[in-house]
Each structure stands twice: as structure tokens, then as C-alpha cells.
Simulated assay, not measured.
Amino acid sequence: MGIAAFWYFAVRAPHPTLIDPTDEGLVVQGQAIYTNSCAACHGAMLQGQPNWRERLANGRLPAPPHDKAGHTWHHPDAVLFDLVKNGLVAGRTAPPGYQSDMPAFGSMLTDEQIVAVLAYIKSTWPSDVLRMQKEVTEQQQRQ
């Protein structure tokens, strides 16, 4: 099973309601938090680190982009929220044994701040990408 499929089926945590990228106040707040907490790894323009699909010498993957070129939009909101709050957790939001440099932000950011960051990220996606990500989120919520 691929990593994306693993995340989709493994995360059964309570999920936030659909994160709204059209809430301008939330997006502005999220952009400021992203700049301070996420951009160092994921890039000021959400571009990710160079060669993000190629493993580093330590076996881990560089930080992926969060723009439409990355895979962030392939995941439902609940998975994205869990990844930011708890980091990549082997056996839960990542395959067993998987190691990542993604930190858990749950002790640094409130749930509302995490939602704001995700609203900001989603606000940068084109409408077709937003529509597909919304469908994935709604499908998971029905399960």
C-alpha cells in the first residue's frame, strides 16, 4: 500500500469540519503562523525542499511542497490536521517504521491555529485541486 493510501485508511481520529480556505481572517492568521512555523522547511512559497521525492543520506525525505505540485492536497483535512498536530506517526499517519523530520506542533500551536495554517495552505490551491481535496475529505467523513 502506498503512503497516501496508508494515510487515507489509517487515520480514524475525530476530524475537524471541512477547513474553509475562503475564510479571509483565518487565512491571514494562518499565513502568519505558516511563515513563523512552517516556511523554514516547506518554503516561503510552499515550494518544499529541493528534490523532495529523493531520500536524504539518513533515509528520510525532505519536506514536501504544499502547493499544487505536492501531494498535500491528496489528503483529507483530518489527516492534514493530524500530521501537523502530531507529526508523522509510524503506524498511524505513516507506514510502520517510517521516520520523518516532521515535528509535532500540538504543543506549540492550538487546534485553531493548526486549522488556520491549513486554511492558508488550501487558499493557495487552484479551484480544481480544492474540489478534489474536498471530495477526499467528504469521502473520509462518510466512513
Rank of each mutant, 00 (worst) to 15 (best):
M1A: 10
F6D: 00
F6I: 09
F6W: 03
W7H: 06
W7I: 02
Y8D: 13
Y8R: 11
F9C: 03
F9L: 11
F9Q: 07
A10Y: 01
A10G: 01
V11A: 09
V11T: 12
V11I: 12
V11P: 07
P14I: 08
H15W: 11
H15L: 11
H15N: 11
T17I: 14
T17V: 14
L18Y: 09
I19K: 00
D20S: 11
D20C: 13
D20L: 11
T22P: 01
D23K: 07
E24H: 11
L26I: 05
V27M: 04
V28I: 04
Q29I: 05
G30K: 03
Q31N: 05
Y34D: 10
Y34M: 02
T35Q: 11
N36K: 05
N36W: 04
N36V: 11
S37E: 06
S37F: 13
C38H: 00
A39V: 05
A39H: 01
A40K: 15
A40Q: 12
H42L: 05
H42T: 08
G43F: 03
G43S: 12
G43E: 06
A44C: 11
Q47S: 05
Q47W: 07
P50T: 08
P50I: 00
N51R: 04
W52R: 00
R53Y: 01
E54F: 04
E54L: 12
R55T: 08
R55W: 00
R55K: 15
R55V: 00
L56N: 15
A57R: 08
A57N: 05
N58Y: 08
L61I: 01
P62F: 02
P62M: 04
P64T: 15
P65F: 01
P65V: 01
H66Q: 14
D67Y: 06
D67T: 04
A69M: 08
A69H: 07
H71E: 15
T72G: 15
T72F: 12
T72R: 03
W73R: 08
H74N: 11
H74K: 10
H74F: 12
H75Y: 13
P76F: 02
D77I: 00
A78D: 06
A78E: 02
V79W: 08
V79P: 02
L80C: 04
F81G: 05
D82Y: 05
V84S: 01
G87M: 04
L88N: 04
V89F: 00
V89L: 10
V89Q: 02
G91Q: 09
R92N: 14
A94H: 01
P95T: 09
P96Q: 13
P96W: 13
Q99D: 07
S100R: 06
S100V: 13
D101E: 15
D101F: 10
D101T: 06
F105A: 09
G106E: 04
S107L: 05
S107F: 10
S107T: 13
M108H: 14
M108D: 15
M108I: 06
T110C: 03
T110Y: 09
D111C: 02
I114E: 00
I114R: 00
V115M: 09
V117I: 06
A119E: 07
Y120C: 06
Y120I: 10
K122W: 02
K122M: 09
S123V: 13
T124G: 13
P126Q: 13
P126R: 12
D128H: 08
D128Y: 07
V129L: 05
L130K: 14
R131A: 15
M132A: 14
M132D: 15
Q133G: 06
K134L: 15
K134V: 15
E135W: 12
E135D: 12
V136E: 09
R142M: 03
